[in-house]
Write a protein that binds this DNA or RNA. Structure first.
Lengths: 149, 149
DNA sequence: TTCATTGCAAAATTTTTGCATACGA
DNA sequence: TCGTATGCAAAAATTTTGCAATGAA
């Protein structure tokens, strides 16, 4: 059973219906490239279904987010639009290169340590974390140095 | 010399002008409560200057952000509006309580360790970090447990 | 058949912009 | 005085909603 199937099953289980539009939005969100915003998802979904409307994409994303099947994130300060990705991937964080715009995902056990610290020392119960970094990636940094010489 | 004075000086140094509106926006951003969005800043600024316009607040925030005097952040997934705070405070991160909405700031040297790891292992040069956590604060968690019994 | 979901268009929200006027330096 | 910055109102950009029609179960 694929991830999509599980998600669709969850939809049914909550009394909702499986429509071709929802299938398509899910497909787009789980495919690469990831981190698309609502409009980009709409454009990609429309490649397969020219009839789908932007309103439906927004409504579908809201439903999927509410059910925890999709995660919305703000990835950098210059892009004030929510980006979406499947919620089935393991916890990870994002780095956006200010030069080439590429998004790098990473994981680090040290982040979990921060959470444990906060739970222990402040009694916080952490449900969701968003660690969004901005800077220059290896390639762009090398390039910038070269052009400065 | 206060923080405001330094900021105003920086404005002048960049060939910009110090206006009463800019003073007020700066004051509001640096005062508490922090983490206001553009409209909240507008409402507070208007208490002292009923003539100030929302457009000016947006334009001022853009200028201050561009100069690095103010930082904009998205603090939680349910509030897709940028929140602002003075850029003069030491690096810190945010936790938003999903129940009472209160924002808690915290610092942790472990976060810097994550950055060092990324710089060392992936060659990333990190310019800005946003760690936004969501969950329940100590008080709300206790309350929820009580009401579930 | 039933009622959740859709597409469309209109509305609501949030942010930006054009332009004449005001005002800082 | 000179040119930046402002206020206003209009526009742009983004997201939500009302409603009749569609289609999943």
């Amino acid at each position: 059973m694929t991830r999509d199937d599980q998600a669709l099953k969850a939809l049914r289980a909550s009394g909702r219906r499986i429509t071709s539009q929802r299938r398509k939005v899910l497909q787009v969100v789980e495919a690469s490239p990831r981190h698309l915003d609502a409009e980009a998802i709409y454009l990609r979904a429309r490649e397969n279904d020219p009839q789908i409307s932007l309103a439906t994409v927004y409504r579908t994303l809201a439903v999927l987010k509410e059910m925890g099947l999709v995660e919305g994130r703000f990835l950098s300060r210059d892009h004030p639009r929510e980006h979406f990705e499947g919620a089935d991937t393991p916890e990870h964080y994002h780095f956006t290169c200010l030069s080439c715009g590429r998004i790098t995902e990473f994981r680090s056990p040290r982040v979990a340590e921060v959470f444990e610290e906060l739970e222990r020392e402040r009694g916080l119960s952490i449900q969701h974390a968003c660690l969004c970094l901005e800077g220059w990636c290896d390639a762009c940094r090398a390039e910038n140095q070269a052009s400065e010489e």
